[in-house]
């Protein structure tokens, strides 16, 4: 049911639109960062680094509008949860952007391009993470608590993939000690992706909270 005061619906709609748009930007940045890493494309990596500024600005705008909404509309119940969740989700997405930027910043620091196997392995982890982030943004856009729950409960496959990647990198370090410098960068890139997966899970919790007013808890651990 619509609000009697139409401006409330307009404000909430604009806030949700901005959060979902930030989510799309974050997904695009994660995909781009993994792509520039795999192709060892230094100019494109620089573009990814610069593009992070848009996420910072969008996050700040969402926070400003959420605070304004709370102050002017004095919302209750789910109307109150929406600006609170918007601010917290935006913060999580902004952190995803920072981590994608960190990945892109490591690209020019690598002594040489990653091997085909390394690129494929990390790209697969990146694909999983970006897919998860896109799924949780879709659940936010669709006001879909079940969709958010499914993202939340599936986090373990990213952790498993991350551990697999780490094992591969450690094995490569043992086999070729002269490439330890690059391998450490690869470990950080993998860790950054795994952290983005954690943020996607956090967003799933917030989407679920926004819709239902209840917290998710007791997720099965590895």
């Amino acid at each position: 049911m619509d609000h009697i005061l139409k401006a409330v619906d307009d404000d909430l709609g604009a806030l949700s639109y901005a959060v979902a748009a930030l989510g799309d930007l974050a997904v695009a940045q994660v995909r781009a960062s993994v792509d520039v890493f795999a192709r060892h494309d230094l100019p494109a990596a620089e573009k990814v680094v610069r593009a992070d500024n848009a996420l910072d600005l969008q996050d700040a705008e969402i926070e400003k509008n959420a605070v304004r909404f709370i102050a002017l509309r004095q919302p209750m119940a789910d109307d109150l949860r929406r600006p609170i969740a918007a601010m917290k989700i935006a913060m999580q997405l902004e952190r995803c952007g920072d981590l994608a930027k960190n990945i892109a910043k490591r690209v020019p620091r690598l002594d040489k391009a990653p091997t085909e196997a390394q690129a494929a392995s990390i790209s697969e982890l990146g694909r999983l993470v970006a897919e998860r982030l896109a799924a949780v943004i879709a659940s936010y856009r669709g006001n879909d608590a079940q969709g958010a729950y499914e993202v939340w409960v599936k986090d373990t496959d990213i952790d498993e993939r991350h551990e697999g990647v780490v094992r591969e990198i450690v094995a490569a370090m043992a086999a070729a000690p002269d490439s330890v410098g690059d391998s450490i960068h690869l470990l950080f890139i993998a860790k950054n992706l795994e952290r983005i997966g954690d943020h996607a899970t956090n967003v799933a919790e917030l989407v679920h909270y926004q819709i239902t007013g209840t917290d998710l808890a007791n997720r099965p651990k590895l």
Binding site: M1, D2, H3, A77, D79, T214
Partner: peptide, 19 residues
Amino acid sequence: IFTNPTVDQTRDYITGRFG
């Protein structure tokens, strides 16, 4: 009641959706 009402009518009233 004001953070997570269980009845839709309550929610509609306190959030200004009561038409």
